[in-house]
Amino acid sequence: MKHDRTDALVLTIGGLFALLTIGMTFDIWQLAWLPIPILSVVMIALGCLDRYGRWGASLPPVLIFGVVLTSLFVWAGLVLFDSGRFGGLQSGVGVVYYVIWPFVTVFSGLLYAVVYARWLRHDVSR
């Protein structure tokens, strides 16, 4: 079988889970933390493929979501162990609570609604 887009995405997912496994097993927080947003977005990208393996109109909103989410994780990672405070919490915890949590709560579900309306509904209704 020739490799296709789905193969590439699934193997990327496997690689990112392998990094997570190493990070969680050997206490390397960067390897446990930073793959999370990338893995989430790669899985979302897999979910956007239609029956012919095309992304169609789904890619721009997913990429924007992915860039923002990854940037927020990098920001939280940069201040994860400092002694400053953000909104009463330690800085890293504050970024997660005041920025990442509201972002994923509002925009991840909204992203699905947008991608469904722009692209996925056409695949289901065929």
């Binding site: 999370i36 899985m43 979302i44 897999l46 979910g47 956007c48 994923v104 991840s108 579900g109 699905y112």
Partner: peptide, 12 residues
């Protein structure tokens, strides 16, 4: 905190 993102991944 990450369950809403988990829901979205599941829906996709």
């Amino acid at each position: 905190l990450f369950i809403p993102l988990g829901f979205a991944v599941a829906w996709f």
